[in-house]
């Protein structure tokens, strides 16, 4: 491998990155508003994070440190591939350490560890339009956003309560951003919704197939939709993490053997690992 990358920095040409950055500036200026952009073909199929990758490519600088997670994990195929992609095309430093990263690209999670104001979180988005489930027409949904006609959003929540007794939407739970736009936070669990409210970090969203960008700037009001008598609630577990013992993280259920035995572990692998290490260090320290 030559030291100099054979690609333009971060794969995309400078003009493409610039148009995306312009789109992102507009998105930041109008929190929650979807901005169309001229999406490029990326060397990966749609649905694998082409939107997120283009956003990441556009904002990466040579001294950035990149972390990529998929469902909270640094070591799934998708996360590893994207990390390698930028390792190869931008020669930037990559990490699994949440604290060390300056840019984190994510699919379906927000890290457990609170982010800081020098970090950017980039979301991969499959369907950016929160109104799509009820209104198939794009021109109509644009008009509904323009006129703040969001009453129908509650139809879905109503149906949940009518059929399940509670709001059964558990991921891609719609939010009202800055008191203006209703936004789909991408398929993160609703457990992560409160982390977007008044977040220290900048949150950027990229939808590759639909070619839309949107953003939540730092310290923006983000409210999850709900009813007065059925307030928004996050998931809770009776268990704690089987590995690190954490009682307040988002847990994945893992089937461990053919007998169907299960255990619950933190979905954020780096967070969990850190806690396990800390415990080990503590017990070592006690032994010494």
């Amino acid at each position: 491998m030559p030291n100099q990358s054979e690609y333009n920095f971060a794969y995309l040409d400078e003009q493409s990155k610039r148009t995306i950055r312009r789109g992102l500036l507009k998105a930041v200026a109008i929190p929650g508003h979807q901005v169309p952009f001229a999406g490029r073909e990326m060397p990966m199929p749609y649905g694998w994070g082409t939107g997120g990758v283009q956003v990441t490519a556009s904002i990466l600088g040579a001294d950035d440190c990149l972390k990529v997670i998929d469902q909270g994990s640094d070591d799934t195929t998708n996360a590893v591939s994207i990390r390698r992609f930028f390792d190869k095309t931008a020669l930037v430093e990559t990490t699994t350490d949440t604290e060390a990263a300056t840019v984190i690209q994510t699919r379906h999670r927000i890290p457990e560890q609170p982010l800081t104001n020098n970090q950017i979180l980039v979301f991969q988005v499959p369907i950016p339009e929160p109104l799509r489930f009820i209104e198939p027409s794009e021109s109509e949904t644009m008009k509904m956003h323009a006129l703040e006609e969001y009453g129908v959003m509650h139809v879905k929540l109503y149906e949940d309560i009518a059929h399940h007794g509670h709001i059964a939407t558990t991921y891609a739970y719609p939010v009202h951003v800055n008191g203006r736009y209703v936004m789909d936070p991408s398929p993160i669990p609703k457990f992560d919704n409160p982390k977007m409210h008044m977040s220290d970090a900048l949150l950027l969203f990229g939808a590759g197939r639909e070619k839309r960008l949107y953003a939540i700037p730092p310290y923006t009001d983000v409210k999850s939709l709900d009813f007065d008598d059925h307030p928004f609630e996050i998931q809770q577990w009776d268990q704690s993490c089987a590995l690190c013992g954490c009682e307040h993280s988002f847990l994945d259920e893992v089937i461990v053997n053919d007998e169907g035995e299960r255990m619950f572990v933190c979905s954020d692998s780096h967070f969990c690992q850190q806690r396990v290490n800390a415990k080990l260090n503590m017990s070592e320290a006690v032994e010494v």
Binding site: E149, G151, V152, H154, V155, L157, Y158, I161, F227, D228, D229, H230
Partner: peptide
């Protein structure tokens, strides 16, 4: 809901 009712 379209005219603002928010009590299920």
């Amino acid at each position: 809901m379209a005219v603002g009712d928010r009590h299920y």
